[in-house]
Design a protein around this nucleic acid. Structure first.
Lengths: 198, 198
DNA sequence: TTCAATAAATTGAATATTCATTCAAGAAAG
DNA sequence: CTTTCTTGAATGAATATTCAATTTATTGAA
């Protein structure tokens, strides 16, 4: 028997290499050859562990999504349990840590594009989106009537996506702090505008 | 000599076919063969008029960008020359007419992804983005102090992009009316929040 | 008007390239 | 010495590009 855990090590090696190559060459330029090179493994190993290129790409996206989800729950746990604070934590998490640089924004955009033509990736994307929305709704419900909460949740979600997209297009010159600040300003405006209507 | 204007007719034929094929098969699936088929021309004609596939794709994106720009100026011209009205017109234009359906949102997303790896397309994208921002700023400046105007302009731009992105991901179930309504609600909130500080 | 002569436009089979996948052989671990 | 892991050359499929041949349009002389 080979060393225990080789499989999970190799899988992660390949996923890391995949993300790196997509960052560098885009989704189109991410060939098995380049990925194998970046991982210092051979091309054959991909089908051995992931069945093929598509399987590797889906695993890589799953990894990105779960990283984001982990950032969210970690950051949320550290904040006071007040609705406004929790909302701010959600925003912070979505622009935090490993997530925030133009490179990883490009990777996200690439996956989004890909997701439109892969039911599996699309499903993953939807699950995450619904989680974000229901998360936002949960806290907004405590601050405003349900209709306004719904609208505000949609708007916050769109804002987050929009800033991400702009980050991807801005060639390294992303200012996560600015995006976070603008999102927070919006949230306070929305709370203020709908306050008292509760 | 051949009939005058054949060149521009053929170019448009190919661009239309390109957009149609991308809508239908995605960016990856948009092969020269399919595009030629959809345009009822031969594959050879592409390199004759555009030098190659890349040239055709760039021309198609140029066409989309200029269509959007035209929608904006057309709609703006019809509205009263009041700052708030003009802002609303900008939002309307960005979700109007030929622009608004999940298919064309997918096409946009595909081009954005592509633009990240093509300096030429990136430059085009930037020009358009700067035009949108300065357009927004021009009117916001009349409603609030410059710092708030800057922040609001960034937020509106991000909102527009964000709703587009969500439209692209939402598999045909896009509600442009809802996106427009939410953008407008935000604008009014922002005006209200920063009013009097003028 | 008709008819070559010429130029422009168009075709699509042939070619070249790129790349995912396969798998027989070999290396490494236990 | 058996099992697992890994390699990478060979294969085949997909597709962009090329270009010689063909078609179509234009011109102007008869």
């Amino acid at each position: 028997m080979a060393r225990l855990g080789v499989e999970s090590i190799r899988r992660q090696q390949l996923i890391d290499a995949t993300l790196k190559v997509i960052e560098e060459h885009g989704f189109q330029g991410a060939t098995i050859g380049k990925i194998a090179g970046a991982s210092e493994l051979s091309v054959g190993i991909v089908s051995h562990y992931f069945g093929g290129k598509q399987g590797l790409l889906e695993a890589a996206m799953r990894y990105l999504l779960s990283s984001l989800q982990q950032d969210v729950t970690t950051l949320m746990a550290k904040r006071p349990n007040a609705p406004r604070e929790r909302l701010m934590a959600i925003v912070d998490a979505n622009f935090s840590g490993a997530q925030t640089n133009a490179q990883s924004a490009k990777t996200w955009l690439a996956f989004w594009t890909q997701a439109m033509h892969s039911p599996d990736l699309m499903r993953l994307q939807r699950v995450n989106e619904r989680r974000l929305l229901s998360n936002l709704m949960f806290h907004l419900r405590r601050l405003m009537p349900i209709e306004q909460a719904r609208a505000t949740a949609q708007t916050i979600a769109a804002l987050i996506d929009g800033f991400w997209l702009r980050a991807a297009m801005s060639e390294g010159r992303i200012e996560p702090n600015q995006a976070v600040a603008l999102c927070k300003t919006y949230i306070d405006q929305a709370i203020h505008a709908n306050n008292g209507a509760k």
